[in-house]
Design a protein around this nucleic acid. Structure first.
Length: 737
RNA sequence: AGCGGGUUGGAGUAGCCAGGUUAUCUCGUCGGGCUCAUAACCCGGAGACCGGUGGUUCAAAUCCACCACCCGCUACCA
């Protein structure tokens, strides 16, 4: 393979270790990062890939509380599950040291609870503090007090009575009913959503803030220079943040699960590093930890400093290439916050002002941040609580990882959200992956095996390269465009170009019709035809190499069936279609994939869902203690439900999902209620309907409009909503019981 | 309502930032061919006033303005 001195670091956003990975993570993060890594290796480059589990923060502590275990147990569990899923998916995290040798790099799927990560974060914290990039500020924050235990609460976990309009349910800093904002201490009757019985008060608390504002100018300059490189979604999101103006951001918080602070004094004992500040540093700490744990023992020539090859600008001013993969929700962290921290680290080390153009010896900034949009599931967002999702571990138990990799690659949410649909998965796998690609390979292999007895490849004797210059030129164009696409992280486009080569192969076979000459190979037509078959054999070799980033398992299988003895790792991407040597494997070829059957897949998925349902039904009564969920008849009759007739429906002036509905609730009597039915019904569908409503609910303003009751409606797992309506003939105002 | 994204043949998409010959690809559909191959493969056809209305320009899917609808986050809500 030709030497390529380029140094590349592949960074994948750190999955939160609070649950198993779902297909959205795979399509948005894991797969693109892995494809890019494998491609860069095939180019002969030195590549280091870093990521791991993000293991701190409030949600993990809540999961731990709910399950009665420690936060560490939560993250241990999911770090294990997710590491295994990634390996089963064929991602390269399993090779900590590059099989070509440690000088080529390697990978590390680390975790933020790693003591070395924690130490390095504390050192960065100190350096930035000394350099004046962190400042101490006193802020006021809610906390709940229960049994003498003080717990600080984020604003979104507090609600109370609005000081302006007296509405209930106002949030810590803003009232949704009247829209007014106020200082934290003005909210009346604050209550903790996590523990409603605790008393809530305001306390002063000191925190360290990162001076993001100091980097505004450099970031504006940098983002202008990146307009040609960044995707539209990345440009837009970043510009939006910069236009709003950057402000200092707290890097510490009142919580006990996280990295302790390198600060003296009791004040700081109960505080930890804020996750956003610490997890992004994982890209840097992970590279250093890789060097210490793997590069040294594998004999890297630079030992513990090996990481610098992938992180520091070299003496000629050349930066390593840094590519960060993530979903759209993570963009500002990678175009604003993390670059600022890197600039701050550089400035702290050199004593110079921050600059967006790192000098030789300094840490490099991103080369691209190809953020993906979201993968939806049958049109809706993946959701743990609504059980709307396909989880990676259960998927991989049943289906071939390469089929998933193919489908998600060809359907990647690169420009906008895309959809995971079972029928489309089956279609694309059967028609494209199997019909076009695997079928081509199988045709070539079985035809070759039908030629007369042989111990080496029988096609070699017929091959005449001069007959295929036109085809070779087309293949070379496809390869070049696939390569250019991958240089720009355009995976769909790239995969399509490569698939075009398989399609070309099919048409070459069609035209040459070698099956007519298998038994009588001597005619001049026969020789020409078999030369085409021989050329197709060479195409299969190229396809194995160039599809390997996308479907690694089956590429390796194909390579073996072709009888190639050379290590596929040492074949250069650019030369993959130019090697004219003929290998041979005398054992009978087998199809690469099995066709998928949509009906049986849907049946299985449904049975999985039913299983979950029955599990839930069984566990519910025991969960809250038996009988606790039951109410007395007296409680039930307190709810006064009546029939009514909808007279008019109008859009709520200040809410997207609300209708303002006037109902006839008795003879010559009407009332107004707000109903969140927009999107489920049109106004005209509702008008005139007989409905059931709760009549004695305390009236409450909803985004400024007083609602005197509540329409009853049913909703199912899929989010469908239907209003309740009595059988005809009941006059408005009739009691329901 | 705030912020972001989207609207291109029946479905899904490329092209838009850097305006310019017959608007891309996959699936589906119709017709023909092949029979080696996993009912797979190959060739050809039909099908789009590029969401709407204005504007800029010699020229607009592409740039600008306004409008409509869809999605996500936040809010609200059955």
């Amino acid at each position: 393979m030709e030497a390529d001195s380029e140094r590349v670091a592949i960074f994948m956003a750190w999955p939160y270790a609070n649950g198993p990975l779902h297909l959205g993570h795979v399509a948005g993060n894991c797969l693109p990062a892995d494809i890019q890594y494998k491609y860069e290796r095939a180019r002969g480059r030195s590549v280091l890939m870093c990521s791991g589990s993000d293991e701190h923060g409030t949600p993990i502590t809540l999961t731990a509380e709910q399950n009665g275990i420690s936060p560490q147990e939560v993250v241990d569990k999911y770090h294990g599950i997710n590491s295994k899923s990634l390996a089963d998916l064929g991602c390269s995290w399993v090779d900590n040291v590059d099989p070509r040798g440690v000088d080529f790099g390697g990978t590390l799927y680390n975790r933020t609870s790693d003591p070395m990560h924690k130490d390095m974060v504390r050192i960065v914290f100190e350096d930035l503090l000394d350099a004046g990039f962190l400042e101490r500020t006193t802020m006021q924050q809610y906390c709940s007090i229960s049994n003498g235990e003080v717990r600080f609460l984020p604003d979104r976990y507090v609600e109370g009575t609005c000081p302006v309009c007296s509405a209930d349910g106002a949030r810590g800093d803003q009232c949704d009913d009247c829209g007014s904002t106020y200082e934290a201490n003005q909210l009346r009757n604050p209550v903790s959503k996590l523990d409603p019985t605790a008393s809530v008060e305001i306390r002063d608390t000191d925190h360290m803030f990162f001076r993001l504002d100091l980097f505004q100018e450099e970031l504006v300059e940098r983002s202008k220079a990146r307009t040609k490189v960044w995707k539209p979604n990345v440009r837009a999101m970043t510009k939006n943040w910069l236009d709003m103006g950057l402000r200092p951001r707290a890097v510490t918080r009142d919580i006990d699960w996280g990295i302790t602070l390198p600060l003296e004094g009791e004040d700081w004992d109960s505080k930890r590093v804020y996750v956003w500040f610490e997890a992004v540093q994982g890209y840097y700490t992970c590279a250093r930890i890789w060097a210490e744990r793997y590069a040294v023992s594998a004999g890297h020539k630079h030992g513990v400093d090996a990481w610098e090859n992938w992180w520091k600008v070299d003496s000629n001013g050349v930066s390593p290439k840094h590519i960060y993969f993530m979903g759209k929700d993570n963009i500002p962290f990678h175009t604003i916050i993390w670059p600022s921290i890197i600039m701050a680290m550089n400035a702290a080390a050199s004593g110079n002002p921050p600059t967006c153009e790192p000098l030789p010896g300094e840490l490099a900034l991103e080369s691209n941040v190809p953020a993906n949009e979201f993968l939806l599931l049958q049109g809706g967002q993946f959701s743990k609580s609504r059980r709307h999702g396909v989880w990676l571990p259960s998927f991989l138990e049943r289906y071939d990882p390469d089929t998933l990799r193919y489908y998600l690659s060809i359907n990647m949410p690169e420009g906008h959200d895309s959809d995971f649909r079972w029928d489309e998965y089956v279609n694309r796998v059967n028609n494209e992956l199997i019909g076009t690609y695997a079928n081509f390979v199988h045709r070539v292999l079985t035809l070759a095996h039908r030629l007369p007895n042989h111990t080496s490849n029988p096609l070699e004797a017929y091959y005449d390269s001069s007959l295929h210059t036109e085809h070779a030129a087309i293949v070379s164009e496809y390869l070049q465009s696939a390569t250019e696409s991958l240089e720009r992280q355009r995976f769909k486009e790239s995969l399509r170009s490569i698939m075009s080569i398989a399609q070309l192969g099919n048409s070459i076979l069609q035209e040459a019709a070698p099956w007519n000459h298998i038994k009588n190979t001597d005619s001049s037509d026969g020789i020409k035809s078999l030369s085409s078959l021989a050329y197709c054999w060479l195409l299969c070799k190229g396809l194995a190499v160039t599809l390997r980033p996308f479907i690694p398992f089956q590429s390796d299988r194909l390579w073996e069936m072709l009888g190639c003895t050379e290590d596929i790792d040492s074949v250069s991407w650019l030369d993959s279609y130019s090697d004219n040597s003929f290998s041979w494997n005398s054992s009978k070829p087998n199809p690469l994939f099995e066709r998928l059957d949509l009906e049986s897949i849907l049946k299985h998925e449904k049975s999985l869902a039913d299983e979950e349902d029955s599990k839930d039904n069984e566990s519910k009564p025991t969960q809250g203690g038996s009988g606790d969920d039951l109410i007395d008849y007296e409680d039930f009759v307190k709810v006064e439900m009546r029939t009514g007739k909808i007279l008019s429906v109008e859009d709520h002036p200040n809410a997207d999902k609300l209708f303002v509905v006037v109902i006839e609730d008795g003879p010559d009597s009407t009332r107004t209620v707000c109903a969140g039915l927009k999107g489920h019904y049109t106004a005209s569908q509702l008008e005139g309907l007989d409905i059931v409503f709760v009549a004695n609910l305390r009236p409450r303003k909803l985004r400024g409009v007083l609602s005197e009751g509540m329409l009853l409606a049913a909703d199912d797992e899929d989010g469908n909503v239907r209003v309740l309506t009595p059988e005809d003939g009941m006059p408005p105002g009739s009691l329901v019981r």
